[in-house]
Design a binder for these strands. Structure first.
Ligand SMILES: [Zn+2]
Ligand SMILES: [Zn+2]
Ligand SMILES: [Zn+2]
Ligand SMILES: [Zn+2]
Lengths: 132, 132
DNA sequence: ATTCTCAATGTTATGTTATTACATCAATTG
DNA sequence: CAATTGATGTAATAACATAACATTGAGAAT
């Protein structure tokens, strides 16, 4: 799914996420976009669904929240496995794309004939800034 | 947190999960336990919280659901990193504890001075049985 | 045995996240 | 101009989770 031209709603949601310092929930995005005509959750969820398909927004499962992609990895159909390091203090999220992890998980899956569609890796903890 | 003696509610919730063939949501557990006197979500959530602390139940973040542990790994304070392979067809969940993955994630975290508290790894896909 | 304490429980209400259903609109195309 | 397709608007509801407060029950201290 290539990053084609975005619609108005998709653009607004993406900009909101891009300017945010931490992951945002769909409802937080909704609140931030009320002034731009957003009225209902679906307007946000529909935009998020597309943006996630395009690979320019990621959903953090352990947070029920979303971030704009900061690590322009493969946005094509061959999605790389991404690990997220999420700081509990400042909310900063860093993306890690590591072939070694990816390969090892592939080996482990194959070993039990498991066909992986999507992989979630999320580390919750404290970033360098917040530990210093 | 050692697996000490379980309370009545904890036992009921754990048994429900143990007998289930797939991950269960808190509300599904609640419904299954109505006959045993359960009336409110909190009764389930409180039991799940403890069982998860004890390490004998796991929460699947990408599913908002819970499973009984099937792979008696380290239940002590030193919790191992567990990867889950979750079949979209039959719901079967297998637990994978792999030092190689664990070490590699530790290296990647350390590289950016990230201190990890908890790691989530979930693979969604199709198990051997369901692909055959 | 009586009191104290703390963890677990019961109950109600509320907060948060996500989807269903249906009507409308706008761009593309034959 | 239909007809199709994808996006949008809106209301209602479903699904997941927690806050607040009262009560109970088992073990420790006296
Ligand atoms: Zn990314
Ligand atoms: Zn931080
Ligand atoms: Zn386990
Ligand atoms: Zn299966």
């Amino acid at each position: 799914m290539e990053p084609r031209k975005l619609t108005r709603n998709q653009t607004l949601v993406l900009e909101t996420l891009t300017h945010a310092e931490a992951p945002l929930s769909a409802y937080t995005i909704l609140d931030k976009l009320r002034d731009h005509g957003f009225r209902a959750p679906l307007q946000v969820y529909r935009a998020l669904e597309k943006l996630t398909e395009f690979g320019i927004v990621h959903r953090l499962e352990s947070l029920n929240a979303f971030v704009a992609c900061t690590h322009p990895h493969d946005h094509g159909p061959e999605k790389a496995v991404i690990a997220f390091a999420i700081c509990e203090d400042c909310g900063q999220v860093s993306e890690i794309s590591d072939p070694e992890i990816e390969d090892r998980l592939a080996v482990l899956a194959t070993k039990q004939q498991f066909k992986t569609d999507k992989t979630t890796i999320e580390m919750r903890g404290h970033c360098g800034n917040c530990t210093a």
